[in-house]
Amino acid sequence: MSPIQEPFADGVSLAHRLDPRGKIVVAGLFAVSVAVAQTYATALAGLALALVCLALARLPLKKVGARLLVVNAFIFFLWFILPLTYPGDAVWQFGPFTVSRQGLLYTGLITLKSNTIVIALIALIATAPVNTLGQALQRLRLPDKLCHLLLFTYRYLHVLELEFQRLVQALKIRGFHPGTNLHTYRTYAYLAAMLLVHSCDRADSVYRAMLCRGFHGKFYSLRIFSWQPRDRVFGAVSLLALAALLYLEWRGAGPL
């Protein structure tokens, strides 16, 4: 079992076949454009674009919905706080609480923008395996260290998880029952410390094994990314769409 599930990475849709480098750049620019948008027009247009991408990726909608639910669980709390604390015209009053119109609009905009960005990221970024993304980032000239960090984190999360499970099993077979007492806290502290020590050792051993195979600070990638005509079309259409978003934003500028 993999620690990071990648339910969307496999597929043959257009979104899966696009060059990951193009997808990363477009998704990044799109996310920033939507994130800074101040008007509903821009956010809604962005949502429409994101939905088009999602349709192109032909992902199982049920799973996409499950992901969005996680995001909206966080946003859910905003609905309790922002409308009550944002200054503006009162629409509703009960006791000491005032719900402001601006607060409601603002929270709605945040909800809309977050969902839009997550949908776009699912359609464009989650449709490539993490390994491919790491290599694509490397090709985009991101600092090697950052790319290695991503790839190694992904690779060794599983090893650490196994290590953790081994330690937990060792606790269990000796009859450990967690409770609210010092013994439990001490045991958990040992567990965390041991995991840290093991991880350090593992990192050391891996580095040694890499040295033995001639590693000298540089990774070579076997993957050959090819920039196809469809990537050119995708890039051009995306740039036009982004320009349209910016135009919408510029026309309707001004907060709410």
Binding site: R155, V206, G214, Y220
Partner: peptide, 19 residues
């Protein structure tokens, strides 16, 4: 587990020759 660190088998086996 100390020795294998590339995502796929082919990449791992090719790691040495590439170096």
């Amino acid at each position: 587990d100390d020795q294998l660190f590339c995502p796929t088998v082919l990449e791992d086996v090719a790691f040495g020759p590439l170096n």
